[in-house]
Amino acid sequence: MKIFWLLLLSFTCSHVFSQDFYFRKEPPLVVEDVRQINIIFQAEDQMIWLGTDKGVFWYDGRRYRQSYVLISNWQRLPALPKVAKVRSGRDMKMDICIRCLLMVMVSI
């Protein structure tokens, strides 16, 4: 009998809990009046790249810097539209730049 009550009592007080991650907010990308970040991507050398509606940026944890590509007069990489993906080129960032540009130029 005692065991029964014990068992009963031991099943009371159950409720659901949630498990959360702590999200910290990075400093805002207010450069160039960016409204929408479409893609976040990490290159092979660990740098984080962002494709936004106002161009391509890279972020080192402290500052956002816009990426330029040397075509005649330092053209900026155009905005990456949402559906487009960025895949790493085989090696370096240069490669990515090229791919990004290739990708974007072709889709305009």
């Binding site: 809990f17 959360d20 991650f21 990075e26 960016v34 929408q36 970040i37 893609i39 976040i40």
Partner: peptide, 18 residues
């Protein structure tokens, strides 16, 4: 996580339960 023009980062090593 990119949300609008904001970036949120979580360290997935830690999960908090209350």
């Amino acid at each position: 996580v990119a949300n609008g023009n904001k970036i949120f980062v979580a360290n997935t090593r830690f999960e908090f339960t209350e």
